[in-house]
Computed example of a mutant assay.
Amino acid sequence: MLHSMTGFAAHKGMANGYSWGWDLRGVNSKGLDLRLRVPDWIEGLEGVLRAELSKKLSRGAVTLSLRVQKDDEDSQQALNLGQLSTVLEAMAEVETQAMDRGLSLAPSHASDILALRGVLDTASIETDTKALRAAIVADLPDLLTSFLEMRRNEGEALDSVMKDQLNQVEALTEASAEAAEKRRDDVAANLRANLARVLENADNVDEGRVAQELAMIAVKTDVTEELDRLRAHVVAARDLLAKGSPVGRKLDFLMQEFNREANTLCSKAQSVDLTGIGLDLKAVIDQMREQVQNVE
C-alpha cells in the first residue's frame, strides 16, 4: 500500500499532574526531515521522540510540536532571560535596519514579546522529569496511529490516481505504435523522393556514403526502442505500486525515464498524428510526476 507524505494528527494526554497537547504535521520532502518543538526542560525527551519517529517514518518533512503544562499550583511561569535577550537584540537590529531604509515600525508591546515562543517558560519545582518523560513517550503511539492512518488514506487516493494515469500512458503508447506504423509509407516515400533528388543533381555519388546517410535517417525516425521502453516502464511502475511504500524515490526516478522516452518520441515523430499523441503522453507523465512527489 502506498503512503502519502502528507498528514496531520493532534492528540491530548495527561499523567502525573501534567497535561499536554501534540501536533504532528507532514509534507513532501526528498528525505526524512524531522523538526521537533518540545520542552527542553524535560531531560532526554527530544532524543527519544526523534528515535521513535524515525522507526515509523522513512520520508517527508515532519514537524512535531508538544506543549506541556502542570495542572496544579506547583507550576509557575518564569521569564527565560536568555531567550528574552536574544529577542530584544533581534528587535533592535530590525528597527535599525528599518530606520536606515526610512521605514517606520509600529511600537512593540510587552504582551507581544511575552507571547513569542521561549520567552515565557512554564517551569515546575520538580527536577526529576523521568516519570513525565516516560508518560509522554507512552502516549506517542496514539498520535502516530492517527498520523499514519491519514497518510495511508492519502496514499490510497494517490494509488488510484496513478493507476489510472498508467492506464492512460499504456493506451497512448499503443496509439503511438499505431501512428508510427501508419506513417511508415509516408516516411519511405519521402526518403525515396529525397534520394532521387540527390542522385539527379550529383555526379559520381559515393554509394557507401549514401547508404550510411540512409541508415542514419532510418535510425532517427524509428521509435521502436522508445515504445518498448515505455511499455517496460509501465510494467515497472505497476510493480512498484503493488509493492507499496516506501517506493517514492524509485517512482520519481522512473518518472524521469518516462519523460525522457516521451521527449525522444516527439523529436522523432515526423508526423502530425504521432506528435499529437506524444504531447498527450508528456502531459499525462507530468501529471503523474506531480502525484509521485507526495509518495513516501
Score class of each variant (00 low, 15 high):
R117Y: 05
E43M: 13
E178G: 15
L88E: 02
G102D: 13
L116T: 05
A211D: 13
L195A: 14
E178C: 10
I285M: 02
V87H: 01
A10F: 05
A189D: 13
Q270D: 12
K220W: 03
L84H: 02
T96M: 07
H233T: 00
Q256T: 04
A215Q: 12
A177C: 07
E73R: 15
L64P: 11
L24Q: 05
L140S: 09
A138Y: 09
L191G: 06
L172K: 05
L88I: 14
V169A: 04
L191H: 05
A15K: 07
K182I: 01
R25D: 04
A215P: 12
G248H: 00
R133E: 05
G7C: 06
G13W: 01
L214Y: 00
R209Q: 11
V247H: 00
R101K: 14
A283P: 02
A236N: 12
V272H: 12
G102F: 07
E95G: 11
A157Y: 00
N201S: 13
L34S: 01
T264D: 00
Q270I: 07
V137A: 06
S111C: 09
A179T: 14
Q287V: 01
H3Q: 08
T122V: 13
E89R: 15
N294M: 01
A110W: 08
F147M: 04
L199T: 08
M91I: 15
D100M: 13
G26D: 07
R25W: 03
M255K: 12
E200C: 09
G44Q: 01
D112F: 11
A215E: 11
L116M: 13
A61F: 07
V234K: 07
T145E: 12
A90K: 11
Q69R: 14
I277D: 01
L81T: 14
E170H: 13
E213N: 10
G248N: 01
A215S: 12
E73V: 13
D100T: 15
T224H: 01
A177H: 03
S4E: 02
A175D: 11
R101F: 12
A269R: 07
V198H: 03
I125G: 09
S58L: 10
R238I: 03
L81S: 12
E46N: 13
V62Q: 04
N16Q: 10
A171E: 11
K250A: 07
K282P: 02
N259Y: 11
L53I: 09
N194W: 12
E154W: 02
F147L: 06
L132I: 05
V235I: 11
D71Y: 08
M162C: 03
I125C: 13
N294V: 00
M91W: 10
V87T: 08
L251F: 02
A193Q: 14
N263M: 02
G17N: 03
R133T: 01
E226Q: 05
A202K: 07
A236H: 06
L144G: 04
A211Q: 15
A131L: 10
Q83N: 09
D286H: 04
L281P: 00
M162L: 09
D206W: 05
V94Q: 12
E213V: 10
L265C: 11
L120G: 03
S111M: 15
V198M: 03
F147H: 08
S108P: 11
Q270V: 09
P39R: 10
M14C: 15
T224I: 06
T127R: 13
M150W: 01
T96W: 06
K163Y: 07
N204P: 04
N167L: 10
D142N: 11
R67K: 12
H109A: 14
L132A: 06
V62R: 08
D139C: 11
D206M: 06
